[in-house]
């Protein structure tokens, strides 16, 4: 009788058979695609014939244009308007261009975006990028794999490769980390140079022209993948300097609401999940797609910069000045 009761209660303890797990975010639906994304005559002023898409340099301009051509073509087709790619000369350059409305859409690095926003609060944030599948990347200080340095202090008197004064992962964040660690970033190193791009800084490190470099994890991954096997084994992370969101897709202030909406749809609907998207994005610098964004995504960056501004005002110039490029690396063709 006892086991009958056990069995009876075992059936009483039968659970529900299926269900949904709670505490899960609901993901926004995919944006509309197709004819609805085409700009209609009233969406833009009649005088506007094309949209200018501004981008920061990350490699030689000709290559960059070639790589991004499918993207430009796609955006133009989806919007139903000509899209012109504008490669800026520097991070700061792009900030000026978008705030002064010399470009309509800009793919801004997070620091650039925060800066642009502070200059032009009416700037629109249409999306944020996902690169190599991730919406965030890290800032690293890296050294060669067999370098004797293991701590930040070991870099004293050595040669540092920065990316750009306005680069979050390539300068500002690592500099802040050094400062917080008790070092004077301007006087710790024997020498320091700005190489303009992450790739250039990595190449300099690999070639031995520098002993340490500040780069983004994304750039590091890409270089290691696309480079030789030798390259992949060549680096080691010395110190992690924080996480940043990927680039912001900003639209200039004054863009009409309908046009802004459609631009948002087009970019947010473009990603590696579709065959078409994969083709379009294949040669971009590892862009996987764009996701919806709001200001909170870049809030962390803003706070970081405010913090740095109060502690290291000298670090933040209003505008970037000219860059020094390493030998063999040119910006233009």
């Amino acid at each position: 009788m006892a086991w009958a009761a056990v069995l009876a209660s075992a059936t009483c303890t039968q659970p529900e058979q299926s269900g949904l797990l709670t505490g899960v975010r609901a993901y926004p639906p995919d944006p509309p695609q197709g004819a609805v994304t085409r700009l209609l005559p009233g969406d833009l002023p009649a005088t506007v014939r094309k949209l200018r898409l501004g981008i920061t340099p990350y490699t030689q301009e000709s290559r960059q244009r070639r790589d991004l051509a499918p993207l430009v073509a796609y955006v133009g087709e989806a919007l139903g308007i000509e899209v012109e790619l504008v490669v800026s000369t520097s991070y700061g350059d792009l900030v000026t261009e978008i705030t002064e409305e010399r470009v309509d859409i800009a793919l801004l690095s997070p620091v650039s975006y925060v800066q642009a926003r502070s200059i032009q609060p009416a700037l629109h944030l249409a999306a944020r990028a996902i690169s190599q599948g991730s919406p965030e990347y890290s800032s690293y200080i890296i050294v060669r794999r067999d370098d004797p340095a293991h701590t930040l202090g070991d870099l004293r008197g050595r040669r540092m490769a920065w990316v750009d004064r306005l680069s979050g992962s390539g300068y500002l964040y690592p500099r802040h980390v050094l400062h917080e660690a008790g070092f004077d970033p301007d006087h710790l190193f024997g020498s320091a140079r700005f190489y303009g791009t992450h790739e250039a800084a990595l190449v300099a490190l690999l070639r031995g022209e520098a002993d340490a470099a500040a780069v983004s994890s994304g750039a590091l991954n890409l270089t290691c993948k696309s480079g030789e096997a030798q390259t992949a084994r060549g680096f080691r992370v010395l110190h992690k300097c924080g996480k940043l969101p990927y680039d912001a897709l900003a639209v200039r202030a004054g863009m009409g609401r309908e046009a802004l909406k459609k631009i948002t749809w087009v970019f947010q609907g473009l990603n590696n999940r579709s065959e078409r998207g994969r083709k379009v994005l294949a040669d971009t610098w590892a862009i996987s797609g764009w996701m919806p964004a709001d200001e909170s995504a870049y809030e962390g960056v803003r706070r970081h910069l405010d913090d740095m501004a109060t502690k290291m005002p000298a670090a933040l110039p209003d505008r970037a000045t000219s860059l020094e490029l390493p030998a063999g690396v040119s910006r233009g063709d």
Partner: peptide, 12 residues
């Protein structure tokens, strides 16, 4: 059990 694979976007 199924879990959406999300990294910014829901990839799968």
């Amino acid at each position: 059990v199924s879990v959406p694979a999300v990294s910014g976007l829901r990839w799968g």
